[in-house]
Amino acid sequence: EVTIKANLIFANGSTQTAEFKGTFEKATSEAYAYADTLKKDNGEYTVDVADKGYTLNIKFAG
């Protein structure tokens, strides 16, 4: 089991951190699915992958 950390960075400057656990593939998939649910209210997003994929910096356009 691994932990994927998602740093969520919103257009208004606020930030939030979420963690997803499971296999690497499952946790990564859940992180992207979570970002997709936030897209409606926060706009499109870009992802900067860090720490060999264990950290995702997800920035929303607003």
Rank of each mutant, 00 (worst) to 15 (best):
E1Q: 07
E1D: 09
E1R: 03
E1W: 05
E1F: 05
V2E: 14
V2H: 10
V2Y: 07
V2I: 11
T3L: 12
T3C: 04
T3Q: 11
T3W: 06
T3A: 08
T3G: 04
T3F: 07
T3I: 12
I4W: 02
I4P: 00
I4K: 00
I4S: 00
I4D: 00
I4G: 00
I4L: 07
I4Q: 00
K5L: 14
K5P: 01
K5G: 04
K5T: 13
K5I: 14
K5M: 15
K5W: 12
A6K: 00
A6V: 10
A6T: 09
N7W: 08
N7S: 06
N7L: 15
N7E: 07
N7F: 11
N7V: 13
L8N: 02
L8G: 01
L8T: 03
L8E: 00
I9E: 08
I9V: 15
F10E: 02
F10S: 03
F10N: 03
A11Y: 11
A11D: 13
A11H: 15
A11C: 05
A11S: 09
N12L: 06
N12Q: 07
G13E: 09
G13K: 13
G13N: 10
S14V: 13
S14K: 14
S14A: 14
S14N: 10
S14P: 10
T15W: 14
T15L: 15
T15C: 05
T15N: 12
T15S: 13
Q16S: 11
Q16G: 10
Q16D: 14
Q16T: 14
Q16A: 14
Q16I: 09
Q16K: 09
Q16P: 02
T17K: 11
T17G: 10
T17P: 06
A18L: 14
A18P: 04
A18K: 12
A18F: 10
A18D: 06
A18Q: 14
A18E: 11
E19G: 08
E19I: 12
E19K: 09
E19N: 12
E19A: 08
F20S: 01
F20N: 01
F20C: 02
F20P: 00
F20K: 01
F20V: 02
K21P: 05
K21D: 07
K21Y: 14
G22H: 02
G22V: 00
G22Q: 02
G22M: 02
G22F: 02
G22R: 01
G22T: 02
T23L: 08
T23W: 06
F24C: 04
F24E: 04
F24R: 05
F24N: 03
F24T: 05
F24K: 07
E25R: 03
E25V: 06
K26A: 15
K26D: 15
K26Q: 12
K26M: 15
K26L: 15
K26F: 15
K26H: 15
A27W: 01
A27D: 00
A27H: 00
T28N: 07
T28K: 07
T28C: 04
T28L: 15
T28M: 12
T28I: 12
T28P: 01
T28G: 03
S29C: 05
S29Y: 09
S29A: 13
S29H: 15
S29E: 13
S29M: 13
S29P: 02
S29F: 09
E30N: 13
E30G: 07
E30Q: 11
E30R: 06
A31E: 00
A31P: 00
A31M: 05
Y32E: 03
A33T: 09
A33D: 08
A33V: 07
A33L: 11
A33H: 14
A33F: 11
A33Y: 08
Y34N: 03
Y34C: 04
Y34M: 09
Y34G: 01
Y34V: 05
A35T: 03
A35I: 11
A35R: 00
A35P: 01
A35C: 04
D36Y: 03
D36G: 04
D36S: 05
T37A: 13
T37M: 15
T37I: 15
T37W: 11
L38S: 02
L38G: 02
L38W: 10
L38R: 05
L38T: 02
L38N: 03
K39H: 04
K39Q: 09
K39M: 11
K40F: 09
K40Y: 09
K40C: 06
K40L: 12
D41K: 12
D41H: 13
D41E: 10
D41C: 06
D41Q: 13
N42D: 06
N42E: 12
G43E: 04
G43A: 03
G43C: 03
G43P: 01
G43H: 02
E44R: 09
E44A: 08
E44C: 06
E44G: 09
E44V: 11
Y45L: 02
Y45K: 01
Y45I: 03
Y45Q: 01
Y45M: 03
Y45P: 02
T46I: 14
T46R: 09
T46N: 09
T46P: 00
T46H: 08
V47P: 02
V47C: 04
V47L: 05
V47W: 06
D48Y: 09
D48W: 08
D48F: 12
D48A: 11
V49G: 04
V49A: 12
V49S: 10
V49R: 07
V49C: 05
V49N: 06
A50L: 14
A50V: 09
D51N: 10
D51I: 02
D51H: 06
D51L: 04
D51T: 03
D51F: 03
K52L: 14
K52F: 13
K52C: 06
K52P: 04
G53T: 02
G53R: 02
G53D: 04
G53I: 02
G53W: 02
G53H: 03
G53L: 03
Y54L: 15
Y54D: 03
Y54K: 09
T55H: 05
T55D: 03
T55A: 06
T55N: 06
T55P: 01
T55I: 14
T55C: 04
T55G: 03
L56Y: 04
L56P: 00
L56N: 01
L56A: 01
L56Q: 01
N57A: 05
N57S: 07
N57D: 09
N57Q: 08
N57T: 13
N57P: 00
I58K: 00
I58A: 01
K59G: 05
K59A: 10
K59V: 11
F60T: 00
F60G: 00
F60A: 00
F60L: 01
F60P: 00
A61G: 08
A61L: 13
A61H: 15
A61M: 12
A61W: 08
G62V: 08
G62P: 12
G62M: 07
G62A: 13
